[in-house]
Design a binder for these strands. Structure first.
Length: 574
DNA sequence: GCCGTTTTCGGCCCGACTGTTTTCAGTCG
């Protein structure tokens, strides 16, 4: 029994109660309990065993008894009763955009729809249209949502893969027969969306390693396990592949399996011009071609082909060859370059940690400054701040800053909503009291591209707006970006000197890496922001740096590589 | 179902958007 297990049971109870049309506040109590189980600071399992759940705020008598029963017996009668008679596929319906408890209840009661499959059938055969509240538009939207889900079913966000990918590589590294190992594929190239994880190992005992790999504890299913290659599936459905090669082949295999396919096609074409055919095992030399140099490591392959080394993140055949030919591959930003960050939340709005806790966590990470940007009043759902509370927070930040005497500083900002017409949620006389302000769109996502672009540009033109938050509002594998003309936004950022955020929440990674190079070339500065809602989220900075590298960004292109003194000067604050 | 109290009952986050129901219900953030 883990915290996750408890959270899942409570969350499912909340869904089933919603289906039964129970009191929304009762439902909310269970959902709140799930959240506490999943992410609360307390040791919920230990407290449950000791009958001390009453110490947790939000867990009342009913949940205490039920969680205690679940933890000590492994099941909960209330939950078993509630879900008897329903297929587990029913829960999938809640993941379809546009379907909530009321509609799911209607679908279940009237048409016995209890899975995405039966929903799709009912959409296609027209039976859904008989139900009141389900018109043609609704059916269209449901079909689109089902299609989106199918499209994404075998895809994973970088942030959901990173821990697994690292622990797999660690396991391979520990094996005594491993000579060297490395990630390959799209994980190595830091793609934001992945469909598998590739690991390459150099060894003299390949069969031992593939067997060892397929028997690792985190492996759920073995898809294939041969003498040089193993494919497995992990509990979350992610596929992981291991390829074992000799030490001599390793640089070639690493280059080959890192891709991208387009990059490799271009590289092999270059190689052929020299009379060398390139594959995952090495160069094979055509007759009367000169002999290629000795290859010790991946860098040597690029050098042999007359190219500067191309970091894996840039291998998308998007101009990296031209740059490498002319020695113009940039020195890309590294995680160690970051000196601080902006756009973080606290308990004042929808964050989980206090100002002090966020500051301590930032100091522990070695940062010199941390920008606090809680939501503004229009983000009701996020407990956005009204001016009085914001001004009070500014005072609190000033008071806290005294203790660090310049060695660390909290910056007082706001994530101010860009309203539908492009005006801001706070008047200028409030904004000007802040150290900086992030402007973000949080509602009215369905404006036309022209309207949305004009709306955002209007906000950027406000002199008190320092940076633009999550430019497209996308949630990876969950919600498409809203319509916006990125090129116009970049031009406006260049003209107004507005920084553009690289929001490094694993769900966002927005602005997309494909736009950063041109933004950089127009002189637009980037800010790598974790959008942290709790101290652990500061770790998202590493994803931000990976995607900034993928966007060709150098240290000098990112505002938060600047030391504190320079940032204060930049923001014109004391 | 939880919480807090002017203590055992009433409040619990609110507004925008969408589609369809011609006056509002459901979903979402």
């Amino acid at each position: 029994m883990t915290r996750e297990d408890i959270a899942d049971v409570l969350e499912n109870i909340a869904l089933l109660l919603e289906l039964k049309g129970e009191n929304v506040f009762k439902t909310r109590a269970y959902r709140n309990g799930a959240e506490i189980a999943r992410t609360g600071d307390c040791d919920i399992i230990g407290l449950a065993k000791e009958n001390r759940l009453a110490e947790i705020d939000g867990i009342g008598k009913a949940l205490q008894d039920k969680i205690h029963e679940l933890v000590t017996t492994g099941k909960m009668d209330y939950y078993e009763d509630l879900r008897s008679g329903f297929l587990p596929t029913l829960f999938d319906l809640f993941e379809i955009q546009g379907l909530g408890p009321k509609k799911i209840k209607a679908l279940y009661d009237k048409l016995e729809i209890d899975s995405i499959e039966s929903l799709k059938r009912a959409c296609e055969d027209g039976s859904i249209s008989q139900l009141s509240g389900f018109g043609t538009k609704t059916v269209e939207k449901l079909l689109a949502a089902i299609e989106l889900r199918e499209k994404f079913s075998s895809l994973f966000r970088l942030g959901d893969v990173a821990v697994l990918a690292e622990s797999l590589l660690d396991a391979i590294r520990e094996h005594p027969a491993t000579l060297q190992c490395c990630h390959a594929g799209s994980y190595r190239r830091s793609k934001e969306i992945l469909h598998d994880v590739d690991i390459l190992v150099a060894t003299n005992h390949p069969g031992e390693l593939t067997k060892y790999f397929s028997e690792l504890e985190i492996v759920e299913d073995v898809i294939a396990c041969g003498s040089t290659k193993a494919s497995v599936r992990l509990a979350n459905g992610l596929q992981a592949d291991l390829r074992a090669v000799s030490n001599k082949e390793f640089p070639f295999a690493l280059q080959y399996f890192s891709g991208s396919k387009e990059h490799n096609v271009a590289l092999r074409q270059r190689s052929l011009k020299k009379g060398w055919s390139l594959n995952e095992y090495g160069f094979s030399v055509k007759e009367d071609a000169e002999a290629p140099p000795e290859i010790q490591q991946e860098e040597d392959i690029y050098q042999a082909l007359g190219l500067q080394y191309i970091p894996p993140e840039l291998r998308e055949n998007r101009g990296e060859f031209e740059a490498a030919e002319h020695g113009e591959i940039p020195k890309l930003i590294e995680l160690e370059n970051l000196r601080g960050t902006f756009h973080n939340h606290t308990t004042a709005s929808d964050g989980r940690n206090s100002l002090e806790e966020m500051a301590e966590a930032a100091i522990d990470l070695g940062l010199e400054y941390l920008g606090i940007a809680d939501h503004s009043k229009s983000s009701f759902q996020a407990n956005g701040l009204y001016p009085e509370r914001l001004l009070k927070q500014i005072d609190e930040i000033k008071a806290l800053n005294k203790q660090w005497e310049g060695s660390f500083r909290l910056l007082a900002g706001s994530e101010v909503d860009i309203l539908k017409d492009g005006s801001l949620d706070f008047p200028d006389d409030i904004l000007k009291q802040l150290d900086y302000a992030v402007a973000s769109v949080h509602n009215a996502f369905t404006l036309s591209e022209d309207e949305m672009t004009a709306r955002i540009i209007r906000a950027m033109e406000n002199p008190y707006i320092t940076m633009l938050g999550h430019v497209t509002g996308r949630l990876l594998l969950k919600r498409e970006a809203y319509a916006v003309n990125i090129d116009k936004i970049i031009d406006c950022a260049a003209e107004t000197g507005t920084i553009i955020e690289l929001n490094c929440s694993p769900y966002r990674l927005d602005m997309d890496w494909r736009h950063w190079r041109k933004a950089r070339d127009k002189g637009v500065l980037c800010s790598i922001n974790p959008d942290a809602h709790r101290v652990e989220h500061l770790q998202f900075l590493s994803f931000g740096v990976r995607l900034a590298r993928k966007g060709w960004l150098r240290r000098q292109d990112v505002i938060n590589t600047k030391p504190l003194a320079e940032v204060l000067e930049f923001l014109k604050i004391q």
